[in-house]
Amino acid sequence: MDFLFLPAYAYGEMGCPPLIPPVATVLYEVQVLDFLDSAQVDEFFAMSSEEQNTVPLSTLFNVVDTERSFGNHCFNQSRFEDAKDRYKQAVTLLGNREMEEKRSIAAVQLPIYLTLSLSLTQLRLDRPLKALEYGHKALEIDPTNTKALFRCGQAYLELFDYEKAQDYHTMAQANKPFDIDINNLLRKLAICYKDYLDKEKEMCFKMCADFVKK
């Protein structure tokens, strides 16, 4: 894709010696590596709150899906703060609709909470409490959801609450006994828990030893 820029929009009267002369019209060849169409999103956010709340659900879902795609794009570039903001915006838009639409909305909310999502993004930002909050929101929608159980287990592991982490991972494993990620995390959890217990035992032994000396 080629773009032609007049001097005023390129390098001006000075140019860029020695490669670009003064007052040069510049032809740029641009390769598009990625593209997200935000036209419908821009139109939506140009509406008033009342107008936004009256658009068809299909339109709202398209806007939310685009916001989620932007979030995924930011997540894949490790721009976790930007990803979090996009995911939260998507959830807020869904939360503004009336109660009778909640069931349809819940099905759209669930992946925003879970996959390349708010919960995982908060873990990447070292915010396990927030990750846990979104994991629990997902479980409110689907109490047996394996991904939600797994995310909660991850969050509890980051919070060093090994017993709850094991509870959630065990429930996730019951749903998918051969899932590699779940089984790997259970092994990691077992190692962390053993190290924790060993340190606790060592601390108790030292305290008892000090007490005997006294």
Rank of each mutant, 00 (worst) to 15 (best):
G15L: 13
C152Y: 07
A107R: 12
K130S: 13
I182G: 13
C74T: 02
D85A: 14
Q52A: 01
K130Y: 08
K214N: 10
Q40M: 06
Q89Y: 05
P56W: 03
D179S: 04
K176T: 14
G135I: 06
A46Y: 03
V63I: 07
E140M: 07
V108T: 10
E51K: 00
Q89G: 07
P17D: 01
A131S: 15
S117I: 09
K147L: 15
T146K: 12
T115D: 15
E29A: 02
L123K: 11
S49I: 12
H73F: 15
R97P: 12
I141A: 03
H169G: 07
L159P: 15
Q154Y: 04
S104F: 01
A190C: 09
M203A: 13
I20A: 01
Y9S: 13
K84H: 03
G135A: 08
S117Q: 04
D2K: 02
E51Q: 14
F80D: 09
A106F: 14
A107M: 14
V23P: 01
C74R: 07
S117L: 03
L93P: 00
I141P: 06
I141S: 05
I191K: 12
A83Q: 02
E67K: 10
C204H: 15
N96W: 03
L139C: 05
D210S: 09
A90E: 13
K84C: 05
L110D: 11
T170N: 07
L93W: 15
L110G: 03
D85C: 04
M47W: 06
N62I: 01
L129I: 08
L33A: 00
L57Y: 08
D161Q: 13
H169L: 14
Y156R: 13
V212C: 04
T25I: 09
D167S: 10
E13I: 12
I112F: 06
R124I: 01
K130F: 11
Y196H: 12
E67D: 00
Q109A: 11
L189S: 12
R127I: 03
D210N: 04
L125T: 09
P111G: 04
N183S: 11
T121K: 06
D161E: 11
S58D: 04
R79F: 10
F5G: 01
A10Y: 08
K188F: 05
P17V: 03
V41E: 02
D126R: 10
P111T: 07
L189V: 10
R86Q: 08
A46E: 15
E163G: 03
L60I: 09
L116D: 12
K102R: 13
Y9T: 05
T170H: 07
Y134M: 09
A39V: 11
F61Y: 07
E67M: 15
R187T: 13
M207S: 07
R103T: 13
V63H: 05
P177K: 14
A190I: 05
G15T: 05
